[in-house]
Design a protein around this nucleic acid. Structure first.
Lengths: 231, 231
DNA sequence: AACTGTGAAACCTTTCACAGCT
DNA sequence: AGCTGTGAAAGGTTTCACAGTT
């Protein structure tokens, strides 16, 4: 797995993947959720102040974030909720519905948890390598055997796969997903996946998250030890 | 529409929480896992090159990260695996074992998934508001009623809670956790929690993650619309 | 008066490149 | 020769503060 481009001489050859900064992209789903809640409760316009307060960020950051999508506010007034919703949705690719496959037993639980349907995602299939789990009904879906992966991905045009298997199986599942045509993977296993260029992977790991919390917790408990250099 | 006058939310005022940068803290668990794998396969020393390659970061970044913990390498040689493991563990607070409570049905699945025991975490209890789930055995633990929360937190000295309930219940659970004495929360619900200062919250949301992936996926599909003019 | 959109400043993170040790 | 540790440079993100618009 090659890592670096060969020539570092090029001054501006980095892969600019999109015009929207990563940090902004990560916040768009949060804004979107807050805006939809606003719309549901009858709001028609919001100021950056009000929306920012609702999501717990500063208003300048929110405005800067939105400015990367375009100029959709009205000076002196604020943003039209419905309009913002549609622009953010469009940026996130929600203009179409994305089919996803969830693989592994944690996936069965996630399928019932996330309200994915409300967010423009269709669970094309739940897959499991364990024959004992196959056939189980989970949240209106029947668990299918791993062998169906290729067929499902091709038939349903799946481009996103969720790996929620034990770590040991994760790389194998990733390989299968990629060879079936999946180009984005959300990986709940602790394994660091090897994938070809062009495939995006995001990893979410329970124990990593807990360890980050315990790092800070540790500091809360013994602040004096870290405050200052002693003798 | 939003009339919340003063913002009670946590604006996260500029505060130096620890001497280790956040970005570094987030990577420590990854280094630690790689180092343990190395140790298990008999490695005794690593160079920053080798370790960095194993976790998919640049070697300079790895060295800079480690330098925030101290100076534990040997020039010309590399790092002693066992020594690094113990220093990173110590930084993450793994010197002691942390008790956690998992609340909600997704928590039941997570309890069986994460190998938390291997990482220094003890699941003090699985709690559920649904009486039908109470008494269920999951991974060697019996699901207990939500009413036990206070007792468990105090009896087991729990400082970390995981919220894996439906969104509608999340804020209530957070309030209960906080009033029982929990000071770090990992929130899998989409709700943005309001907590008092001093309580850390990390949120992990399945549909947010999928939306981040679909953002990029969207761009892959229609690159011409967003790409710059090529040479 | 209220609020957006945005340059510029401040801050944080990553990468470079090399001095210094083994 | 090989590798760490780290200042300095480069790049990215957040915050400030205000001109511009309604």
């Amino acid at each position: 797995m090659p890592q670096h481009g060969p020539v570092p001489a090029t001054p501006l050859a980095g892969r600019r993947r999109s015009d929207v900064p990563d940090a902004t992209v990560a916040r768009l789903p949060v804004y979107l959720r807050a805006l939809r809640a606003l719309a549901d409760s009858g709001g028609t316009t919001v100021s950056s102040q009000a929306l920012a307060a609702a999501v717990g960020v500063g208003s300048a950051k929110l405005r800067k974030d939105l400015s990367h999508l375009g100029s959709y506010g009205t000076r002196g007034v604020g943003y039209e909720v419905a309009e913002l919703v549609s622009h953010i949705s469009a940026a996130l690719g929600q203009g179409r519905r994305w089919s996803v496959v969830l693989v592994g037993d944690l996936g069965h639980a996630l399928a019932g948890y996330g309200r994915l349907g409300d967010r423009g995602f269709i669970v094309a299939a739940l897959l499991d390598a364990d024959p004992a789990r196959v056939g189980e009904r989970v949240n209106g879906l029947v668990v299918r055997p791993l062998g169906d992966l290729d067929e499902v991905v091709r038939a349903e045009g799946v481009s996103i796969g969720v790996i929620a298997t034990p770590s040991a199986a994760a790389q194998d599942i990733a390989d299968r997903l990629v060879s079936a045509g999946v180009t984005s993977i959300l990986n709940f296993a602790s394994t660091l996946l090897q994938v070809p260029a062009g495939v995006d992977v995001r990893r979410v790991d329970l124990s990593d998250e807990l360890q980050i919390l315990s790092f800070h917790e540790h500091r809360k408990a013994v602040p004096s030890e870290f405050a200052e250099v002693s003798a």
